[in-house]
Amino acid sequence: MKSENYIKVEFPSMSANEAFARNVAAIFAARLDPTLDEVGDIKTAVSEAVTNSIVHAYPSELGRIQLRCRLPEHNLVEIVVRDWGVGIADVPQAMEPMFTTGGEDRSGMGFSMMEGFMDSLKVRSSPGKGTTVTMKKRILSKARK
């Protein structure tokens, strides 16, 4: 087995788990000695990805959400949020700023936040099978030291 640090946690799509998920990712990334600003970026992006799964992947029932974090390079954190829900038919449309099917209490800015606050964002989705969001962020504070 390749010696690489990682975590994998799974939880039901209850909105109370949004805070849990973003804090787990932030604690995992803490070993790279990020700045407060970088921690905030990671927490925001994870919160958006997990909220998408809770709101859109499982609109009428609870399902499972998986959060995986790993360190593929010494100052790089990769975060994957996966669900097995309804999926997204048109990923480019879903990623447009202000696009939402979530009603008046959603801003439609979720993917924009993930894109803006992380260094890379990849969304794979199949209708009926689920969605996998892969985000990477380079922790510059460590590289600068």
Binding site: E48, R106, S107, M109, G110, M113
Partner: peptide
């Protein structure tokens, strides 16, 4: 201390 895009909806509404 923290908000995600849900806070945007609170402000705009």
């Amino acid at each position: 201390g923290f908000t995600d895009s849900s806070g945007i909806a609170v402000l705009l509404r």
